[in-house]
Design a protein around this nucleic acid. Structure first.
Lengths: 113, 113
DNA sequence: TGATACTATGTCATATATGACATAGTATTC
DNA sequence: GAATACTATGTCATATATGACATAGTATCA
C-alpha cells in the first residue's frame, strides 16, 4: 500500500521527500496532495463530460492548453486556487467541491479512461 | 444584500473589480472568495479553540505571525493552498474542510467572537 | 506607570505559480 | 501518409505568494 502510493505520487512529479523520509511526509502534506489530485481528476471528468477540449477550457479560463494539461496531470506547479477556479468555472458548486475534496470522487472504473 | 457583500469584500481588501462592475465578479470568482473567507474563519476558530497564539501557529507552519494574521484577515495575498495546509496542520480532516468549504462553517453567534 | 503578550498592517527580497510558446506524441479521417 | 484535432511536456519571462522584519495597536497585570 505504501509503495503503491509513493509510486503514484512520484509519477505525478511530487517532491516526495528526498527518498529518506517517505513517511516523513506529514499527514498534512500528504492530505493536501491527495486533495489536489482529487480536484485534478474532477477537472478532467467535468471537462470531458461537457465535451470540451483542453484548448476550449483554457480559453474560458483565460489560460493555456498546457496549463490545463498540467492541472489534469496533477502537476505540482498547479495551485489549489487554480484547480478550484477551474472547477467553479466548469459549473461545480461548493457542494460538489466539498464532495471531491472529502475523497468522494473516486470512480469505480479503474485507472485512466 | 449586494452592498453588504461588497462592503465585506472590500473591507477584506479584495479587488472587487474597479468599481465599475461589482456584478462583473463572475459567479466563479465570488464563489472562490467566499470559500477562502470561510477557510480563513475556520483557521481562526481552530487556532483559538486550541489555545494557540498566531506566533505558535506560525512556528508550526514554518511561517510568520504576520502571515497568520493575514490568513485570518482574509487577505487576498493568501493562497488557498496555505489556508488548507494550515487547517490540516490544525487537525482538520478532509471532511472538516469539505464542511467549511460548502458554507457550513457559519456560526450563529453573530460576528467576531 | 511600565512590562508583557498578542494581533494588525506595511514593506521587501525571494520563491513559486502562471500564461505563453514550442514541440512531440496519439488517434482519426481522408 | 498527409492532414486535422487533441493532449503531454519542457522552457521561460513575468506575476503573485511567501517568510521575514519592523512597527503600531490593544489588552492585561503588577
Amino acid at each position: 500500500m505504501k509503495n503503491t502510493k509513493r509510486a503514484k505520487l512520484e509519477a505525478a512529479g511530487w517532491a516526495v521527500g528526498s527518498v529518506k523520509e517517505f513517511l516523513g511526509l506529514s499527514e498534512a502534506e500528504s492530505a493536501l496532495i491527495d486533495m489536489k489530485l482529487a480536484l485534478s481528476r474532477s477537472v478532467r471528468e467535468r471537462r470531458n463530460k461537457q465535451g470540451l477540449s483542453q484548448v476550449q477550457l483554457a480559453e474560458r479560463l483565460q489560460s493555456s492548453q498546457s496549463r490545463v494539461a498540467k492541472m489534469e496531470a496533477g502537476d505540482p506547479s498547479v495551485s489549489m486556487d487554480l484547480l478550484v477556479s477551474s472547477l467553479l468555472l466548469l459549473g461545480a458548486t461548493s457542494a460538489d467541491l466539498a464532495k471531491a475534496i472529502s475523497g468522494e470522487g473516486r470512480s469505480r472504473k479503474g485507472r485512466a479512461t
